[in-house]
Design a protein around this nucleic acid. Structure first.
Length: 743
DNA sequence: GGAATTATGGCTCGG
DNA sequence: CCATAATTCC
């Protein structure tokens, strides 16, 4: 009896095929992690491969950690030497060693999106760019996309041709890169781009890593982007032992540059690639899996496949529609409380999934009220909080004084009486002398018209210098406590004594415990705990990584965060057209946007093992406005016979005066299901007897602006209107959705 | 120079 | 609605 006997034939084939390129098309819940871990075990135990020569790239740190543990269980302690990490942490480790070859300092800092925005704001000011016209966020998004595709500022400028806007973006991009470099900082995208650049420029470095990583595995391959693909193919170019695992139906990160072509075209790039499909699902009941299959079948662009399972049929899916989001949350939390009360489930077995982070609030409030432990994944990052950022910027300044952003942030925190005027004068001097902001502070007496501020600046510099020298001997925790102590940060908050200040102190305590646990972890691994090591780790940690399976809490998260996870009981909330699918993609002129949204729905459904509950609200408060939404089209794509509408049980007490009679809501739900998918009952309603505009009329569209109607074609469900817009050109759209207004 | 108050504008999704 | 920017006031 070997450890491989428990695997099914295609799984075994994937494990034993170790040489050459391999594409594993692994459907949801088909045991791909088992395959990967057994494959690593097989390489080590049977093929005699040194664990040191294996690289496995996962999507999150949490997945990496789990994989390592499972390999350990199979092979003994050898798992520790396998390099299992995310793309970003892999790149950081390489860059810490070699980035000086690209003219950076090896102690670079990593900028998060807040830092990026601050930097961008400054650049726009410097270049006299009107941030009303070019939004920082939008500029950064364009730059990020360029980096995903490995386009340099020069290339962007060349590609721009006569396009003034593009040229402007290229100019900002160039300036932004220069600023990063002079701050000795890298953004997230740079981690990948600079590593690839390093490989391309330094053959010896690439070669050493090619020799090291003789066997490479990449998980969640459908969500890799172009630069990640380049990184992997460079590494695998020598030995060609590249194994990628993915599922094109679960590709949900196009907005972040993910290139679905990487998986769809794998066989084209590697003609000798072996392809193995894993289609048996071990996770979900038949009902859940069938629902998922039916929904995803509505997508046109996909590799045809159908998952099957030997699991029991299980319960039908539940669907409930409520008057508003308030009642929806009350029902979901009530249902979870009931499961716990009746010992049917632990909290940790339940997950509430939604489309946007903003939806978490209602559920959080109900959890608090019902005294149910919960954890929200994502949303406002712990490290984005003011008090945490302040303290981290002290640590960053101590670690890398070239980081102007960090230095400027703490210069007057706590208040030292150094204001904007002084900062501007020092900055001008620094720019003029071409030195860092901190170096300018150190020679503040040279700065013109610095006046009374000189004393205060000298005090600050002395303070930082003393911390810097202490950092040589102190542990990370000690230096953090020293900062808190000497700045009086916590003392000040204590004096404030408000609910808010107490929460801030709690956060600071949590930060201290994070440095402590970092030091413990490093000690356990026999690595040195350093300040830059700590800063790097927290820069790369994702919220999902902090989920503790030993704690009994309900998990609240977005569908995106739920990727790769599974739960016995799943609640998909906010199943409304306009929420999910989001209105953005309903109105999009790119039909693949809707397909990606549907894949997201597929991911959501396939997270559930035993029971899946879908909920929606008739009216919902979005950004302070009431929206009236129809039940999501995705719900309508699920065959009626797989769904139970819950008319017999009325568990939740009607809480609001305007609760509809059960009969009414039942009728509404029946109506939703009466039509088969895509006969789309609700669309017919929107088809007006006639339109109030005709060919040749000028109309206004909510997104595209003003245009002239060119053509109107009467279709089965709706009128198809062709409009020539002033700004975006000719678009075809359905009258029911487009909400065109005659002007 | 700093705090308080008013105006504004933005929500997908994340490492 | 809620966080942040801009503006005003001290």
């Amino acid at each position: 009896m070997s450890i491989y006997d428990t695997l099914n034939p295609p799984q075994q084939e994937a494990v034993f095929h170790t040489e050459g390129p391999l594409l594993i098309l692994a459907g949801a819940g088909s045991g791909k992690t088992r395959v990967l871990t057994h494959r690593i075990a097989h390489l080590i135990a049977d093929k005699g491969v040194n664990p040191f020569n294996i690289l496995a790239i996962t999507f999150t740190n949490k997945a990496a950690q789990e994989m390592r543990e499972r390999v350990d269980k199979l092979t003994g302690a050898d798992g520790m030497s396998v390099w299992v990490a995310t793309f970003h942490s892999t790149c950081v480790r390489i860059l810490r060693r070699y980035i000086d070859r690209l003219g950076y300092d090896n102690r670079f800092t990593i900028y998060d999106s807040d830092d990026q925005k601050t930097l961008m704001k400054e650049i726009c000011r410097k270049l006299n760019i009107d941030t009303k016209k070019y939004k920082e966020r939008s500029l950064l998004a364009q730059i990020s996309h360029a980096k995903d595709e490995m386009i340099t500022p020069d290339e962007m400028e060349m590609n721009a041709g006569g396009d003034f806007n593009q040229k402007k973006v290229a100019q900002v991009y160039r300036e932004y890169q220069a600023a990063l470099k002079s701050n000795n900082a890298l953004d997230f995208d740079d981690l990948l781009v600079k590593t690839v650049e390093l490989f391309q420029n330094c053959g010896d470095v690439l070669e050493s890593y090619q020799e090291k990583f003789r066997y490479i595995m990449v998980d969640e391959y459908q969500d890799t982007n172009t630069v990640q693909f380049k990184f992997v193919s460079l590494l695998a170019a020598r030995y060609g032992n590249l194994c990628v695992v993915g599922d094109d139906d679960q590709s949900i990160y196009k907005f972040r540059g993910a290139n679905i072509g990487n998986i769809l075209g794998f066989e084209r790039v590697f003609p000798d690639a072996k392809v193995i499909r894993l289609e048996q699902n071990y996770r979900s009941t038949k009902n859940i899996l069938n629902a998922a299959n039916e929904v995803i079948a509505n997508n046109a662009a996909r590799k045809e496949k159908r998952l099957w399972t030997e699991n029991p049929e299980g319960e039908k899916l539940h669907f409930r529609q409520f008057m508003n989001g308030f009642e929806e949350a009350e029902y979901v939390i009530g249902d979870i409380a009931k499961k716990k009360r009746e010992h049917l489930a632990d909290y940790r077995e339940c997950a509430i999934l939604y489309r946007t982070n903003a939806q978490s609030r209602l559920f959080e409030e109900k959890c608090l009220k019902a005294n149910i432990p919960y954890k929200i994944v994502g949303g406002i990052n712990f490290y984005a909080r003011k008090e945490i950022k302040d303290l981290l910027c002290y640590l960053k300044t101590i670690d890398n004084s070239a980081d102007d952003l960090a230095v400027r942030r703490i210069l007057n925190v706590p208040k030292r009486g150094i204001g904007a005027t002084t900062v501007g004068r020092v900055q001008d001097y620094a720019d003029y002398m071409n030195v860092s902001f901190y170096d300018a502070l150190r020679v503040a007496e040279e700065v013109p018209s610095i006046g009374r501020s000189l004393n205060k600046i000298e005090g600050f510099v002395t303070f930082i210098q003393s911390l810097k020298s202490k950092a040589q001997a102190y542990s990370v925790t000690e230096i953090l406590e020293e900062v808190i102590d000497l700045t009086g940060y916590v003392d000040e908050l204590k004096a404030e004594d408000t609910e808010e200040s107490r929460a801030r102190i709690e956060n600071i305590d949590e930060l201290i415990s994070k440095t402590v646990s970092y030091e413990e972890a490093m000690k356990a691994e026999g690595r040195e705990a350093t300040l830059s090591g700590f800063l790097e780790e927290i820069a790369l940690i994702a919220d999902i990584d902090t989920v503790d399976p030993d704690q009994d809490y309900v998990l609240l998260m977005t569908l995106h965060s739920a990727k790769g996870l599974e739960f016995p009981y799943v609640y998909l909330a906010g199943m409304e057209d306009g929420m999910f699918p989001s209105s953005m993609c309903i109105f999009s002129d790119d039909p693949t946007d809707m397909e990606e949204e549907r894949r997201l729905c597929y991911v959501g459904i396939t997270r559930a093992m035993k029971e899946l509950t879908l909920t929606s609200a008739r009216q919902r408060l979005v950004r302070g406005e009431t929206q009236y939404n129809k039940v999501s089209r995705f719900v309508r794509e699920i065959p009626r016979e797989l769904v139970e509408l819950g008319t017999t049980i009325q568990e939740h007490k009607p809480s609001m005066q305007e609760t509809p009679s059960p009969k009414n809501s039942y009728m509404q739900m029946r109506q939703t299901f009466r039509a088969k998918p895509f006969e789309a009952q609700n669309f017919k309603v929107t088809k007006a007897a006639s339109l109030d505009y005709g060919v040749g009329d000028t109309v206004r569209h909510i997104k595209f602006g003003v245009g002239i109607v060119r053509d109107i074609v009467e279709g089965g469900r709706d009128y198809e209107v062709t409009v020539d817009f002033d700004k975006v050109g000719v678009k075809k759209m359905f009258a029911g959705f487009a909400k065109l207004k005659k002007i």
